[in-house]
């Protein structure tokens, strides 16, 4: 859905976000995520390269189809909650009446109705975050860009927010997600791009990426409290406790063969392939800059 390449903070970055997808944009601090997001929002322009939205080159009228929640949250502190939401929605091209109606609905949904006529500065930080979220989505954008959406939310509110994000996706919005929180990436993202040092370091669906980074690790459990004995020609033992173990396969050994090998000698009750977490993949990719990008 979007193609983009070239910038000093972004070098040859190209990514494709399928419609209706929750897409994770990952990368360490200073990798160029915010630069990219600002370009997508037409806040700044790229020095080279282009952005396509639904196959069309991005133009000014498109801002009405985009909702943006910046990492550094900000609202007019002296303005009333309701007025503020309506104003920001009208800036995005919404008619006043429609904006007011939608504002009431959303405040209801987030239990903020009684705060409608209060100034933003009187609200708690969590409530301000909710107001900002409402202001981002009120004009029913087709593309939502969230920069660290969960920061500042307690677990209960974060769960509610996650539910809303999934609901918006189900209603047809495409969601681009920038975050450091790998847990939330595994939870909600279907595809990711990892940017490191202004370049794309990783790209693909979460499953694909994980499979490409698997270390052939298995977690095995046994019926009795036996302890796994070493078999260096088949696997190395990472952890062995009575009744269970974590092993990784020796070079050239297929998982099938290892299971057969174990099954002949022990009473297996379970074998699970251990895929690396996004957290591990992130750290591995970022701390090994010489590594080739895996597609």
């Amino acid at each position: 859905m979007k193609q983009y390449s070239g910038h000093r903070a972004l070098d040859g970055v190209s990514m494709n976000v399928p419609e209706g997808c929750i897409y994770g944009l990952l990368g360490p601090n200073g990798a160029g995520k915010t630069s990219l997001i600002r370009i997508l929002n037409m806040i700044t322009r790229a020095d080279a390269g282009e952005v396509l939205l639904n196959g069309e080159p991005l133009r000014e009228a498109h801002v009405e189809q985009i909702g943006y929640l910046p990492e550094e949250r900000g609202l007019y502190k002296k303005m009333k909650v309701g007025d503020q939401i309506v104003y920001l929605a009208r800036l995005k091209g919404m008619e006043r009446d429609a904006a007011v109606k939608a504002m009431h609905e959303w405040l209801e949904r987030f239990d903020l109705t009684e705060w409608r006529s209060r100034k933003v500065e009187e609200l708690s930080k969590g409530m301000q975050q909710k107001v900002q979220f409402i202001a981002t989505v009120l004009h029913r954008p087709r593309l939502l860009i969230f920069d660290e959406p969960f920061s500042g939310f307690d677990p209960v509110n974060a769960e509610q927010l996650k539910g809303e994000i999934l609901r918006l996706r189900d209603e047809g919005a495409t969601i681009l997600f920038s975050t450091h929180n790998m847990g939330s990436v595994e939870d909600v993202c279907e595809r990711i791009t990892l940017i490191n040092k202004s370049r794309v370091a990783l790209e693909g669906s979460v499953k694909e990426v994980k499979r490409n980074h698997k270390k052939n690790k298995l977690s095995v459990t046994f019926d009795h409290d036996v302890t796994l004995e070493a078999a260096p020609q088949v696997f190395d033992i990472d952890v062995a406790t009575p009744g269970s173990a974590v092993i990784h396969l020796a070079k050239g050994v297929e998982m099938r063969d290892a299971i057969t090998f174990l099954n002949e000698r022990y009473q297996l009750t379970g074998v699970t392939e251990l895929l690396p977490s996004m957290h591990e993949i992130f750290i591995e990719t970022v701390t090994q800059p010489q590594q080739e990008a895996t597609a």
């Binding site: 037409m42 806040i43 801002v63 550094e72 900000g74 609202l75 007019y76 920001l88 995005k92 900002q132």
Partner: peptide
Amino acid sequence: EKTNRIVEVVVSSCRP
């Protein structure tokens, strides 16, 4: 607007 950080939201809706 700059200290409130609202400006980034506003300029994502209109030209600076």
